[in-house]
């Protein structure tokens, strides 16, 4: 299972990076989302998968999966939600006021 997920992480990163390297803001935005998913799965996989019950002590299990990466990921999900929201609005605002979606076109004046 871990090997499969490791491969999946690779694919997510590949597509994510490919999209991030585009000119279109929307593609970049989707790319960052994919990279975030990749990171989350990576964190989860690092700790080992399905090594025990859900980290709820009420389960009264012998062993639980590692709770630490889950806490980290939870924080990350929320933060990346904030970031993508910011990013969406940036794209939206940039397009509305400057009428372009091309990051190459929106660079600052060069001397």
């Amino acid at each position: 299972m871990e090997l499969l997920i490791a491969l999946a992480i690779g694919v997510l990163f590949t597509v994510g990076v490919y999209l991030v390297l585009s000119k279109s803001l929307l593609r970049i935005l989707l790319g960052t989302t994919l990279i975030t998913h990749g990171v989350h799965l990576l964190l989860l996989t690092m700790a080992g998968l399905k090594t025990g019950a859900s980290p709820l002590l009420g389960e009264n299990a012998d062993s639980y999966v590692d709770p630490l990466p889950q806490a980290l990921i939870l924080t990350s999900i929320v933060i990346s939600f904030g970031v993508s929201a910011f990013f969406i609005v940036l794209a939206y605002r940039a397009y509305r006021s400057a009428g372009m979606d091309d990051v190459e076109g929106s660079r600052g004046e060069r001397e």
Binding site: E2, A6, F13, V17, L21, T45, M46
Partner: peptide
């Protein structure tokens, strides 16, 4: 394309490397 595939491959390697090495006792 090359950069993205290379990056994806690197991340897969990181994931694989992390699987089998635990130099420290987990704090979990």
């Amino acid at each position: 394309l090359i950069i993205s595939i290379g990056f994806g491959a690197t991340m897969t390697m990181v994931a694989l490397a992390a699987l089998d090495s635990s130099p420290f006792e987990s704090i979990s």
